[in-house]
């Protein structure tokens, strides 16, 4: 099993991930990170760890890891 990790401090709020997510699993709530950007969050229920968010992100926000058992 895999899991999507979000490095929220790297996010600059461009929303490419949200636009490209086929499952609508990503969203921005409004909380801001240290850089001052409202950062992206994930609904793990919807996420299939397809990796598209990682591909389209300019800021290395996403990581897909092995889920710890």
């Amino acid at each position: 099993m895999e899991k999507l990790i979000i490095h929220k401090e790297s996010c600059k709020s461009c929303r490419y991930c949200i636009e490209n997510c086929p499952k609508g699993a990503l969203y921005i709530k409004g909380d801001i990170n240290e850089k001052g950007y409202p950062y992206v969050s994930v609904d793990h229920e919807k996420c299939t760890t397809c990796g598209i968010c990682y591909n389209v992100c300019p800021d290395y926000v996403f990581e897909i890891q092995e889920r710890e058992v």
């Binding site: 401090e9 790297s10 600059k12 709020s13 461009c14 929303r15 490419y16 950007y37 300019p58 800021d59 290395y60």
Partner: peptide, 10 residues
């Protein structure tokens, strides 16, 4: 982290 503007393709 890179130092580009938000949404920059670089």
């Amino acid at each position: 982290d890179n130092k580009y503007c938000p949404g920059c393709g670089h």
